[in-house]
Amino acid sequence: MQFIQILAFGLLLGGVYALLASGVTLIFGVLDVVNVAQGAFLVFSALFTWQIWDLFGFEPLLLIPLNGLLMGLLGWAIYRGMLVRVAPQGPGMTVLLMFGIALILEGILNLWFGNKFKSVTPSYYLSSFNFGDIVLPMPQLISGILAFITLGLIYAYLRFSWAGRALRASAQNKEGAALVGISQRSAASLAFAIGAATAGVGGVLLAIMYPIFPATQYDWISRLLGIVVLGGFGSIPGAITGAMILGVTEAFANTYLPQWSSLFFYGAILLILLFRPQGLMGTKTREDVVA
């Protein structure tokens, strides 16, 4: 029974990771930009949640639409204002730009919140959900379910809307997309906005699960990049699979070998990349094959 409980816990955790990583991989797929600021966006949203909750005391989950929208707008503005100018300089420069943005955001958060852990503790913070012998902490359960719902909405949007089709087309073949009249600039702005919005939503979910302080952005971005590398850069199914592997591995390792928890996931990445350098679901590019 304990096995099923840990597995369920791991899958819920994996759902939250999947939402966060899907934003990174979507941005990479459409823009070829590794958004190393996603961790900072996430922490920014989480600390904003804490601030509003601390000031007004209302249900933090109600901030999900607002944070998603605000971070989406911030992402859109960053793309239109900065990234679009730097993108022609190549991936090295865009990584530097996004790293710079992450450092600036972290600095602002440090000034505002101080270098201290902040915890959002709503009424259900310490409660749990009992399903027979399986006991799941309420914040994890709620966050996991909301993450899956958000992922479902993103999937439906990408699959069935015209904007979603345009994004997928742009990610798969930029020249082909231009030929049918899809503007790369619009597709890229939308992809960056959606990617950042996932951090907005994810930030609220993290805020009710974990204590947060500005420098935790490094911990989060390394996990997210790990997931995306494992799944294959640019592949959303890959990011979901990678996230589930991380969630379940972490849940089991935390129970049985807590001090080795990180080693298992990064060890798995190392092993998988030895045999599949393009990640679990990534495709080899022409450059990979030539090299």
């Binding site: 015209w162 089709r165 345009a166 997928r168 087309a169 798969q172 073949n173 020249e175 082909g176 997309a177 030929l179 049918v180 009249g181 899809i182």
Partner: peptide, 26 residues
């Protein structure tokens, strides 16, 4: 224009590929 290089979206269905040809009249 039908270009020389592969211009389709390989991981999308043939139907979606066709529909995207009508993106401008969506």
């Amino acid at each position: 224009q039908v270009p020389q290089n592969r211009a389709l979206f390989p991981e999308m269905s043939i139907r979606d590929n066709l529909l995207l040809g009508g993106y401008a009249i969506r």
